[in-house]
Design a protein around this nucleic acid. Sequence first.
DNA 1: GGTAACAGGATAAAGTTAGTCCGAATTGTC
DNA 2: GACAATTCGGACTAACTTTATCCTGTTACC
Lengths: 151, 151
Amino acid sequence: MQITRAGEYAVLGLMSLARHTPGQMSMIEEVSREEKIPKSFLSKIFQNLAKAGLVRSVRGAGGGFVLAKQPDEITVLAIIEAIEGKIAFQRCRQEKAECEHVGGCALCGLFEQAQDGLKDVLVRTTLSDLIRQQDEIKSHGGRQQAVLANH
Amino acid sequence: MQITRAGEYAVLGLMSLARHTPGQMSMIEEVSREEKIPKSFLSKIFQNLAKAGLVRSVRGAGGGFVLAKQPDEITVLAIIEAIEGKIAFQRCRQEKAECEHVGGCALCGLFEQAQDGLKDVLVRTTLSDLIRQQDEIKSHGGRQQAVLANH
DNA sequence: GGTAACAGGATAAAGTTAGTCCGAATTGTC
DNA sequence: GACAATTCGGACTAACTTTATCCTGTTACC
């Protein structure tokens, strides 16, 4: 029951892109150094983000990655699902509506609710929200609790 | 990002116990057959539930397992955490308040929120809620959507 | 003492995670 | 056109987790 590192790195990596001036290319090398993420792993992750249409990649000298959308149009849910696939707690609903266990479907219903609660939080937060929060944390010396910026 | 089978089996197994008259022993064998869960695996799971104090085990002939509390005192969260350990999405908050990634703590804060949203759903549902819902699903021929019994 | 039941440890196969490595393709520059 | 910079894509791997199974030991009842 954890977010994978790949998902975490994806969000951090995109935050790094978002902090740059819009349209400016960033190289894997840079982002990797900035966020302390293994370079070759990050490169794999960005490949998938490109496939998902969240970043645009440009090869060759002077190439790199740019956000494909505005930071406030990219939700954390979209990023995580791009890397980890659709969030799906329960096994049953996916294909058939009934499961073989006696109490199965009551449980599946509950898991669906739980999953929705989770998604709800992740879909309400965008890259720009995260960056704003991060700035606040930094400017207050990190002494305070996490800020709940979205309402 | 999934509930493990062990966690799922634990809930189903306890639902099975809860359907019996209070105080009546159930054997692994029975529950295993009823819920179609591998016997030896289920036995391991119940061992852990016993350690967590959710069931009482009695050895020897005529032994088995009984719920250690009333079904409405056992939340799904308690069951899942007994089997899978504390739900913890984020890595950072656990020990140190700061993480090394640049945008790290903003992200940790978000994950904490998401995790709370999830826990909230799981803690509001007890074994008896699940059983009630299951009865409703069955009595309506399973044609309807999952019932949201808790408010 | 025999049988029924859980306890607990060892083991194992399969799947997932977290990377690494390398050659190929693409682009800009001289 | 040669060369350097950079991503793309696939193969590979080591470690860990999940999902079990099996065997021996222990406890309780008769």
